[in-house]
Amino acid sequence: MKHTYNITGMTCNNCKASVERYLSEIDDISEVSVNLEKGEAEVKMDKHISTDLLQKALPEKYTLSEKKVKNVFTSSSMSAMPMEEEKSKLQQLKPLILIIFYIASSSILLHYKNWSWSVFMLDFMGLFYIVFSFFKMLDLKGFPESFSMYDPLAKRIPIYGKIYPFVETALGIMFLMRLEINIALIVTLVVLVITTIGVTKTLLDKKAIRCACLGTALKLPMTEATFIENAIMIVMASLMLII
């Protein structure tokens, strides 16, 4: 079942991320999507959950009221739903795919005349961190809330989510300038392994939340692409430490 609720009290992306996080933690809720501009939240649930229970899960500053109820399991919509969802997912992932493509292309073009896999990987990781930290910097207030929805360390230690964009920037500079490479590689492994654990748990629980890998400026869904993106960086860092 899909229910749409009016929510008052939201003023920024930080509020939006908070509402999504609190509602997503309720049992039997599989997906939460908040529209800040409309002041609405679409909630998919496996069984009916009362409005009172939803309200109790939110801080007092937010007021939730039901707008409409829509049954997504009607026969007229089931046949078209898979293709629509798949198309929507691909469209939403387009910015991420393009960014990784340009980062990889730039890393190749920088050294195509004197090719070296190790140099390529260092530049790829450096550009990856610089570009991804840039998008996080666009909303330093909203990012920590979105990040803490799936990263276990950011959830337990809020300050970690606040400094994470700066950690990425520092790692990017270290890789591009070849400063303390081994330290940067070890930090990369620790940071991304922690995040990947959270991503894996979210995917296994089939929770539909926003991915904060590109901050809150771009609305990216948490999908297997997020796992693959982290896995690529983990493999590169591991190979560089072994080589």
Results as ranks from 00 to 15, higher is better:
residue 5 Y to G: 05
residue 5 Y to L: 02
residue 10 M to C: 03
residue 10 M to E: 11
residue 17 A to R: 00
residue 20 E to P: 07
residue 23 L to R: 13
residue 24 S to W: 01
residue 24 S to V: 01
residue 29 I to P: 00
residue 31 E to A: 14
residue 34 V to I: 10
residue 44 K to Y: 09
residue 44 K to P: 02
residue 49 I to D: 07
residue 49 I to M: 08
residue 54 L to S: 10
residue 55 Q to E: 07
residue 55 Q to P: 07
residue 59 P to K: 10
residue 64 L to E: 01
residue 64 L to I: 05
residue 68 K to L: 01
residue 70 K to A: 06
residue 70 K to Q: 14
residue 74 T to Q: 12
residue 76 S to C: 06
residue 79 S to Y: 09
residue 79 S to A: 15
residue 81 M to W: 12
residue 81 M to P: 00
residue 84 E to G: 11
residue 85 E to S: 09
residue 87 K to P: 04
residue 95 P to G: 00
residue 96 L to G: 01
residue 98 L to D: 03
residue 99 I to H: 01
residue 103 I to G: 01
residue 107 S to F: 03
residue 117 W to P: 14
residue 130 I to M: 04
residue 133 S to H: 02
residue 134 F to T: 15
residue 136 K to G: 09
residue 139 D to P: 08
residue 143 F to P: 03
residue 146 S to L: 01
residue 148 S to V: 06
residue 157 I to T: 04
residue 161 G to S: 07
residue 163 I to N: 08
residue 168 E to T: 11
residue 169 T to N: 05
residue 169 T to P: 05
residue 169 T to F: 05
residue 172 G to M: 00
residue 173 I to C: 04
residue 176 L to S: 00
residue 177 M to K: 14
residue 180 E to R: 15
residue 181 I to N: 12
residue 183 I to K: 13
residue 186 I to T: 10
residue 186 I to F: 14
residue 187 V to F: 13
residue 188 T to W: 11
residue 188 T to M: 14
residue 193 V to T: 15
residue 197 I to G: 09
residue 200 T to V: 13
residue 200 T to Y: 08
residue 206 K to E: 05
residue 214 L to M: 15
residue 215 G to M: 02
residue 219 K to F: 06
residue 221 P to T: 04
residue 224 E to I: 12
residue 229 E to R: 04
residue 233 M to W: 05
residue 237 A to R: 09
residue 238 S to C: 08
residue 241 L to G: 05
residue 242 I to T: 12
residue 242 I to M: 12
